[in-house]
Design a protein around this nucleic acid. Structure first.
Lengths: 179, 179
DNA sequence: AGTTTACTTCAAAATGAATTGAACTGACGG
DNA sequence: CCGTCAGTTCAATTCATTTTGAAGTAAACT
C-alpha cells in the first residue's frame, strides 16, 4: 500500500480561476461528491456539478459566478439551473443591490429525497403493479404443471412489488427522524 | 379518456417465431416488465430481456432458445448470460439427454436484491463517507460566519450519509420478512 | 431608439454505453 | 484429422444522452 485512499479520479469540472486554491480544493471535493452521488441516481454530471458548487459556497452565487467556477457551457448552466429549480434543489434569492438573481441550495434535503422517492421509485413501482396485473391475466394456460409454475412466478413478482411499495413510506419515515 | 392503460411503448425485443401467440404475448409482457425495472437499476436492456425470457419460461431454456426468442445478437446473448450467471440471477442446469447447457432463473430474488444493495448502494455510501471526511478536513476557514455555514453543511451531508447507511440493513430485513 | 447585460433555446457535436457480427476457440462426431 | 456445432471475444458500429455554442429574447440602462 503506497497510495492514499483516492476514491475517484476527480471530475475536473471545477476551475480554479483567481480564488484561493484552498477554496477551489474544497469546491472540487464537494462537486465530486455530488457528481458521484448523481451517477447513482441517474442525474447528468453538469447538473450535479452546479448543485455542488452552489452547495460549496457560503454565499449565494450568480449565474456568472457558476459559469466562472465550472468548466461547462453557458447553455448547460442555464439548463442545469432550470432543472434544479424545478425539483426545488436550489432557490433564487434576489440580491438587493444587483440586478442578477442569486442561487443558494435549498437545504431541505428531506424534501428532495422525498420527491425523488415519489417521482422515480413510487412511479416505477406503480407501473410495475399494472404490468403485473396484465401479466397475471395473460398467463398462458399450458398443460401439466407448467401453468402453475408461471402462476407462482408472477405471484412472486407481485409479492416483491408490494413489499417494495410498503417499504417506501417506512424508509421515508426513517430518514425523517430527527433530520 | 379513450385509451386503455398502456404503461410503456413495449420494448419490441421478443420475436413471435412459430410459438403460440398467447405464449409470445406473455413473454413480451414479462420481458417488458424486467426491461422497465432494469432501466431504474441501470442494467442494459438486453440483459434484462434475457432474464425476462428465461423467467417467462416454465422449462429451462438453451442458448439457442434464447437467441430464437429475442431479437438480439448472439454476442449479446453470450455477454448477457455471463453477467446474469455472475450475479447469480440465472443458473445452469445440465440437460441429461442433450449436450447444450440449459438456463433457468434463480428464484432467490432475495439474494439478488441483497447483492444489489451490497454492490451498488453500500459501496456508494461507503465511498461517500470517505469523501465527506476529506471534505471536512478541506473546509476553508474563511472569516465571519462563513466557515460555520460550510461546516454545518458538511455535517448535514454526513448525517444523511449515515442515515442512509443505517437504513440499508433495515430495508434488507424488511424485504426478507416472509419472502 | 439603441446598446448592453443576462439569460434561454435548440440544432448540431461530443460523449459514452450497449450492441453487433465476424473471426476465433475448443469440444465432439465421423 | 477434418468439419461442424456451440459459444466467446472484441473492434467497430449504433444508439441514447448530454453538452456545446451561436443565434435569439427580453429587460435595463443611456
Amino acid at each position: 500500500m503506497t497510495t492514499a485512499t483516492l476514491i475517484t479520479p476527480a471530475s475536473g469540472l471545477v476551475l480554479t480561476g483567481d480564488r484561493p486554491s484552498e477554496v477551489a480544493d474544497f469546491e472540487r471535493a464537494m462537486v465530486d461528491f455530488f457528481v458521484d452521488a448523481a451517477e447513482l441516481l441517474g442525474v447528468p454530471k453538469s447538473v450535479a456539478a452546479i448543485y455542488g458548487i452552489v452547495f460549496a459556497s457560503p454565499a449565494p452565487l450568480s449565474f456568472a459566478d457558476i459559469e466562472a467556477r465550472l468548466d461547462i457551457s453557458k447553455g448547460s448552466v442555464s439548463q442545469g439551473l432550470r432543472v434544479l429549480r424545478e425539483v426545488g434543489a436550489v432557490k433564487e434569492v434576489s440580491s438587493e443591490s444587483d440586478r442578477a438573481e442569486l442561487f443558494e441550495p435549498d437545504l431541505e434535503l428531506r424534501k428532495l429525497v422525498a420527491r425523488f422517492m415519489e417521482n422515480r421509485l413510487a412511479k416505477q413501482l406503480g407501473e410495475g403493479e399494472s404490468r403485473l396485473d396484465q401479466l397475471a391475466k395473460a398467463l398462458p394456460k399450458g398443460r401439466h404443471g407448467e401453468a402453475a409454475v408461471l402462476r407462482s412466478r408472477v405471484k412472486q413478482l407481485q409479492t416483491w412489488n408490494s413489499k417494495a411499495r410498503a417499504l417506501l413510506p417506512i424508509a421515508k419515515a426513517f430518514l425523517n427522524l430527527g433530520g
